[in-house]
Computed example of a mutant assay.
Amino acid sequence: MTVSLDVSPDDVQQAAARIAGRVRRTPVIDIAPRCTFKLELLQHTGSFKPRGAFNRLLSAKENGELQGQGIVAASGGNHGLAAAYAARELGVPARIFVPETTPAAKLGKLRTLGANIVQIGSEYAEAYQAAVAEQDKTGALLVHAYDQPEIIAGQGTVGLELLEQVDGFDTVLVAVGGGGLIAGIATALGEHAQVVGVEPAAASAMHRALEAGTPTDGPVSGVAADSLGARRLGDLAFAAVRAQGVQSVLVDDEAIVAARKELWSGFHLATEHGGATAYAALTSGAYKPAAHERVVVVVCGANTDPSTLI
């Protein structure tokens, strides 16, 4: 069966124009002759997520869908921060549903953004069910963490920046939770580079979907579950990654922890475990580049307790 793509390269280009001036053009640094970091952890709110959040809200505003009732979102933390930040910038209220396991560092930042926070359940899926119920009750705009076209197109602007910033790269390593970031980057890059999704073995929604031929529910655990803890890959993300031939590799918690420590000790980059997951594919050998392959690693999240880095 042919699956149609709901997000096109043109959508990503339009998103880039729409969110220009709202998000940072994050820098890249070469850490080795054939390895480059894309420092998306320096984005507003400490992750790539504001790209999609702004594109969703601004698109809704253009269409008259964003009214005084504000927005509602569910998140393991990073998406909630981005949605709350975008809502504050556009002057609308935000109600954010998060699991009870959300790290204190992320909860504190949510409060500073003025969001109304509701903690419920032990994982993202339960928070999402509560957010949908709230949307049905209030008519607020639902801002999905990863499975809306506007979200994916916004995240894809990371890929557009890479095409302008890095000359002649072959591969991009991207951490995967629900799939919004990797779907957007793969759509933006097309045939320019291969895209490899890196997932924790304990939360492998994309790997499982590619093996099964369709998104399926599965268990979520491990050190990166707060940011990469989607129980199921998004349907739009699945269509995009399958169409673009995205590869999948898995890394264990030990590799993620070691990569996070190396990012701090070697580069003074304070990342959360999810933000270190893509790099863990290289440091652990789960992904082994060819001799002349140039690799870009998206370092995607910084919302962590700095005391845990030492």
Rank of each mutant, 00 (worst) to 15 (best):
L5D: 10
P9K: 07
D10E: 15
I19E: 01
I19M: 00
T26I: 13
P27K: 11
D30W: 15
L58T: 05
S59H: 05
N63H: 08
G68W: 07
A84N: 11
A84D: 13
L90W: 07
L90A: 08
R95I: 14
T102S: 09
P103F: 14
A104T: 12
G114F: 12
I120N: 14
I120A: 12
E123A: 01
K137T: 13
L141A: 01
D147R: 10
P149H: 07
L160Y: 03
E161F: 00
Q165M: 12
L173P: 00
L173A: 00
V174H: 02
V174F: 02
G177L: 08
G180H: 04
G180Y: 04
I182F: 02
A183C: 11
H192A: 14
A201R: 11
A202S: 10
A209S: 11
A212Q: 09
G213W: 12
T214M: 14
V223H: 03
V223E: 03
L228R: 06
D235R: 15
L250D: 04
E254W: 09
V257G: 06
A258P: 04
G275S: 03
A276I: 04
A276N: 05
P289L: 06
P289H: 14
H292P: 11
D305H: 12
P306G: 00
S307W: 13
